[in-house]
Design a protein around this nucleic acid. Structure first.
Lengths: 186, 186
DNA sequence: GTCTATATTAAGATAGAC
DNA sequence: GTCTATCTTAATATAGAC
């Protein structure tokens, strides 16, 4: 077969899609090879640690994406409402309208490395803090801002689970719509 | 080895624990055999359909448990507050204080049968309806009762995801505490 | 840097003894 | 109804050609 070339970025985007659909245990090196057009041996050449290393790289890419598209914009310029509206649009895109699961849900199921578990926990903490900072800026007390941020993440994650089980993304749309009210003073 | 005897009930309870920890793809017949003390061939004798049949039986048992411990008590006698307090205690037990995941989360990840997917969806619909009926009985309008019930399930599922990722069950405890307020008029 | 080929281990599944 | 033994397929992982 002709040699296939694929950038790390493209490769990891393909891997992300597999992992957030089937979970860590549900994805094999063979599947990753087929989906990327590479042979298994080529994947091992680029990621000698195998699936564990690939999934860690995927998680790293997702965290970088969140920094650029969620955390930085949330802390940026413009009115809080506008920043939230922007971020909500990015979240809708990333989760494809609620049809794609969150890697914090699927990859936190035992099977992956301790390193992965730690990275997911760190990412969730960062996300909660980013939401809490906005809520504080909008005028909520630090304690209330924090609890509203945690509730927002809980509802966000739950809406993705419910959307998947029900085969209906309305729960996801509802939490996106509720986010501004949750994270700002009425 | 001496022949092992184990009841279906005990066997399926063991299987439930594995499936809600590792997910469908994360559990092998070998693991189920080791955990139940039976050989693989004995599992196939009792469940000729293999893992798919075992996980369906597990789901059936869980639904039966919910009918007996959640849905029936919710529709039963006594004050709404008392019924909710009873049910919240049962939920805390079933999810072991938020340390065990929900099978609707883990088993809705692709890998299982279409039959399983349908059963999980049906179970979630039943759960939402049971919550909505209580909210209606407490005086909320049908529309508001339904949206509160859906929010309760979303937050319940989300709290289990967040508890797992964070390694901290406080999110689960928070939703249990919030349930009475969510499902009744203030 | 990707390929073909292969080694090794594990998973799913069944046959037949007891 | 459970066991041991075995078959087949799939998964992880590596060696070596190009």
């Amino acid at each position: 077969m002709a040699h296939r070339i694929i950038s790390d970025e493209e490769l990891l985007a393909t891997a992300l899609d597999l992992f957030r659909t089937y979970g860590f245990e549900g994805v094999s090196i063979k599947q990753l090879a087929d989906a990327t057009g590479l042979e298994k041996a080529s994947l091992y050449y680029r990621f000698p640690g195998g699936k564990d290393e690939i999934v860690m790289a995927v998680a790293g890419d997702v965290v970088a994406w969140f920094e650029k598209n969620i955390f930085d914009p949330l802390a940026g310029a413009g009115s809080i409402r506008k920043r939230l509206a922007f971020v909500i649009e990015r979240l809708r895109e990333f989760y494809v309208g609620g049809t794609k699961a969150c890697i914090m849900d699927l990859l936190s199921i035992p099977g992956g490395s301790e390193e992965l578990k730690a990275a997911l926990k760190e990412a969730m903490k960062t996300w909660i803090s980013a939401f809490a900072d906005v809520a504080k800026e909008s005028g909520l007390s630090p304690a209330l801002a924090r609890s509203r941020a945690e509730e927002a993440i809980v509802r966000f994650e739950g809406s993705l689970v419910v959307s998947r089980v029900m085969g209906d993304t309305s729960a996801f749309e509802r939490i996106l719509k509720a986010l501004p009210e949750l994270l700002t003073v009425a």
